[in-house]
């Protein structure tokens, strides 16, 4: 059955019928997500669920389509096929129908990028306050009333600073509050990105390789931060990560993609032992290989090599 007919008939993907590996209630339901760029199929009929108050990791070799999934979720791409349902306290949002900036504004999906995308010439504190833009914009009567020092606006601004201070404290950045964000050390910038995403008060946090380029100590601090967000704020976190110590250490649920297809879905324990995952990451033994897939082994291995270089 092709993806199109499945949608037309309203069929739920068979993977989604059981409980979510790792437990929890569904926060995000991705069904039959397909993204084509011309002839290239970047994501091919991927379905999975991410639970609230759980950490769901999306892993896979380079070029597997992980970031493309994020781009579909956050409105950068419009999926060719698929239904992306976010279960929000305010109701259900279909993310594939929401225009770019409203994904954050209305649906409450926050995201970070592989490369750091802070506002480098704003201070650390300002980075966190601009993330609360919509709240402040409403309170200030679209800036006009704010100019006259309206009480409601001053209160809203105080609250915004309070929230920013809370996250500065959690991310160990309080001392750096008045520095320009671009001048922070790399590890601090990474944590500031997470803090900024949390300041948008999201329901789902999407982190694209938050541990990339961190040393083991910094990545340990990041792990603790993510666990804190999961446990204390009951926030669903969707994580793309290559660093297996992070993935295996903190994820509740792992989805593995390869060549745009989902090849495995389960708890870290299940995924670690899944032969399909081992094949994708390490390549196959020549002898065990089925006749038709001779090329797959060395190529996957080569990709694994590139990944390490990157």
């Amino acid at each position: 059955m092709s993806a199109e007919t499945a949608i037309a008939e309203g069929a739920t993907s068979p993977d989604l019928l059981g409980p979510i590996p790792g437990g929890g209630e569904a926060q995000l339901t991705v069904e039959h997500l397909t993204m084509r760029f011309g002839g290239l199929v970047a994501i091919d009929d991927v379905s999975f669920q991410a639970a609230d108050a759980r950490i769901t990791a999306i892993i896979g070799p380079n070029g597997a389509g992980k970031t493309t999934v994020f781009n579909c979720l956050t409105g950068f791409y419009k999926p060719t096929v698929g239904r992306l349902a976010l279960h929000h306290p305010k109701g259900e949002f279909l993310l594939e129908r929401i225009e770019g900036f409203r994904t954050a504004q209305a649906a409450g999906v926050a995201r970070t990028f592989q490369n750091i995308r802070l506002f480098p010439r704003m201070t650390v504190l300002e980075n966190l306050i601009v993330a609360q833009h919509n709240k402040l914009m409403r309170a200030s009567g679209y800036t006009v009333l704010g100019l006259f020092g309206l009480k409601r606006y001053r209160e809203a601004e105080e609250k915004a600073v309070e929230l920013a201070r809370y996250w500065l404290d959690r991310t160990l950045l309080t001392k750096a509050a008045d520095q320009e964000a671009g001048n922070l050390p790399y590890g601090d910038q990474r944590r500031l990105e997470v803090a900024r995403a949390m300041c948008t008060e999201p329901v789902l946090l999407c982190l694209d390789e938050p541990a990339a380029g961190l040393n083991p100590r910094e990545s340990q601090v990041l792990n603790e931060l993510l666990l804190f967000i999961r446990d204390e704020h009951k926030m669903g976190i969707l994580l793309i990560e290559h660093d297996m110590s992070v993935v295996m250490g903190i994820s509740d649920h792992i989805v593995v993609l390869d060549y745009g297809r989902k090849i495995s879905d389960g708890t870290p324990e299940q995924v670690r032992n899944d032969p399909a995952v081992i094949r994708a990451y390490l390549g196959e033994d020549e002898e065990d290989e089925p006749a038709g897939e001779t090329a797959a082994g060395p190529e996957s291995a080569a990709r694994e090599g590139e990944e390490r270089d990157a």
């Binding site: 956050t74 950068f76 770019g100 900036f101 409203r102 994904t103 954050a104 504004q105 926050a110 995201r111 990028f113 995308r117 802070l118 506002f119 480098p120 010439r121 704003m122 601009v130 993330a131 833009h133 919509n134 900024r196 995403a197 948008t200």
Partner: peptide, 14 residues
């Protein structure tokens, strides 16, 4: 200022 420094990111924070 946010739009000036990174327009896509500004959209992502709403």
């Amino acid at each position: 200022r946010a739009c000036e420094q990174d327009r896509d990111m500004a959209a992502l924070i709403g």
